[in-house]
Design a protein around this nucleic acid. Structure first.
Lengths: 335, 335
DNA sequence: CTGAAAGCGCTTACAG
DNA sequence: CTGAAAGCGCTTACAG
């Protein structure tokens, strides 16, 4: 357990220069194959550990990526924390490390950037989930690359990977209509997040395409703009189906419907979004949409690394989700 | 958005030396108060960002902590991911960043340490959750401090913060006995993790203290040693109460009991552990134990930082949990 | 194929 | 209170 073995130490032991050691360990040209092997072997024997900091000073590259997510999205049963986990694994594969920064509401309001930025600990930032447009504005002005994940903003210059909420909601509503439903409501605060909004728009497109006149009473609020869930009010006249903006809300809503005496799916059909734990906790199990976390993660990681290396621009990249058919939708006999 | 402002740049602008700038920005002695203020102001104006890498080369300190957690503990509804989130926030408060490393079963078996170690990206490691004893052995031999969180090993030299599973299970079982129960079973594979084992032992102590002879049929397996949950077999003669090693298992078990025609808590009482999402998903809501994540996190973070700075040793520190009384236990009339 | 020199941005004694 | 000098461990031209 020798303290701080350096390239110089290896060089001394072998009677070569540290330049040669550096080349050998980094698999660069300019070292004989035999010598390279010997150097690597000696490095291992001596317990050499690469000093990333030293490399960073010289090259200005840390091989760290900061991942920023708002505290309001990272509760106990958090989708984004498992997203972060995937990002961390994916970055690790590519030789990078992931530094998480939970963005507090206070720091967001005061436009405080994460430590990894102020202290040059990261070469780029992945923003996981929505932040205020002021904060987006701030992020577009900093001098390291930024990629937005699962969220986009009206700023057209930002690079983002999003799940194709619009298209998925459109398909899901089509599915409902093809199952014979005509009275279909949407549950979600369409001003709270762009996800909820886009899902609403996809729902709306499906309605319009099928010449179903949208009913304003059928757009039902589920939360405050800060994300706090509120009690969902049933409309005066009930539709035959509800599109819920997420499985959790669907779960709560199904309980409420049952308490009001409705049977699912006999009386009321329900679809959710996310395919998270609530989808199968709900009885009957929810027909829902599964976000393709794996692909989104891979894309975002590739984007940030490419942006770091050659400053590429990508724009907004939607990733298709997948409809999971389960037992919460009734097929209505068409008259 | 000037690229790469350095201390030298600030010094030049102000006609002082970079040494003075360094002292001012680090709040060290040796600069006039007025000059210090002027330097800080100029740094801000010029958009100076501290270069941690450069500091690290000189000082050998990265202000990063690696957090290592086994992939098997970090599923979708993961307790450990929210634990990690707390750690990240707590470290941030102290000026550190948290680098997550998901330990794959393969890397664990091959005794591969995380990148943050091999590349000197971290000053210390927090191990979140159980790893194999070979891996623990490996970790005790490395030359940066390590703190184990929510897990300990027979190695007595390791520093660890654990929830006091033993004591909590003891109290929980006492509560059952005080409620009139005498036939009490324990559900959990007592060889799978030290948590499950300690909870079992606390249960056992309570039994012994109350002169209740332990019944071997009342220790019931719930999982394979790799963590995969298995179907729980009901004992031939049913006890009046079950201590489940975690809420999730309790949740599944309650469903099974109901399917077999038992009512909870009228026929069978149940207690869980963890107070996670499953505690309130279970109907009736579970009486359970809440792990004090906040305090455990704060302790672990303090420990690792103190170990880095003055190599202190702590040993095994248990943190008390809190019993949450809900509706899953029946008070039996004592004859 | 191998290596001497310069430099990345910072901090730490030490001298004035 | 202020700063010149040395050095942390590495990499990048460049020369041999």
């Amino acid at each position: 357990m020798s303290r701080n073995v350096t390239m110089q130490d290896i060089a001394d032991r072998l009677g070569v220069s540290k330049v040669t050691v550096s080349k050998a360990l980094n698999d660069k040209d300019g070292v004989g194959e035999e010598l390279r092997l010997k150097i690597k072997k000696t490095a291992k024997e001596m317990g050499y550990r690469y000093n990333t900091s030293a490399k960073s000073v010289k090259l200005g590259i840390t091989y760290n990526i900061g991942v920023v997510s708002h505290e309001k999205f990272t509760g106990t049963d958090s989708f984004y924390m498992s997203f972060y986990k995937m990002i961390s694994k994916e970055l690790d594969k590519k030789g990078y490390s992931a530094i998480l920064h939970i963005l507090s509401a206070k720091d967001e309001a005061e436009l405080q950037l994460p430590r990894s930025y102020y202290e040059r600990k990261a070469d780029g930032l992945i923003i996981l989930g929505q932040v205020s447009s002021e904060y987006v504005e701030l992020l577009t002005g900093i001098d390291i690359p930024v990629v937005f994940l699962d969220f986009y903003d009206k700023h057209n210059e930002i690079d983002s990977v999003i799940s194709d909420n619009f298209y998925a909601a459109y398909e899901l509503t089509n599915y409902l209509i093809n199952s014979g439903h005509r009275e279909i409501a949407y549950i979600g605060n369409i001003y709270a997040t762009s996800s909820i909004q886009d899902r609403y728009l996809g729902y709306l497109k499906s309605l319009l395409e099928h010449r179903i006149t949208p009913n304003p009473d059928y757009v039902i609020n589920d939360r405050l703009e800060d994300g706090t869930l509120i009690d969902i009010e049933l409309p005066e006249t009930m539709p035959t189906a509800f599109v819920c903006n997420c499985d959790k809300v669907a779960y709560n809503f199904v309980i409420k419907l049952k308490q009001s005496g409705y049977r699912i799916p006999e009386d009321i059909s329900i679809v959710g979004f996310d395919n998270d734990i609530y989808a199968t906790l709900t009885k009957p199990n929810l027909t829902t949409v599964q976000v393709n976390v794996t692909e989104m993660t891979a894309l975002a990681v590739n984007m940030i690394i490419n942006k770091i290396n050659n400053n590429k621009s990508y724009g907004r990249i939607p990733v298709k989700g997948k409809i999971i058919i389960r037992d919460s939708v009734k097929r209505i006999n068409l008259s």
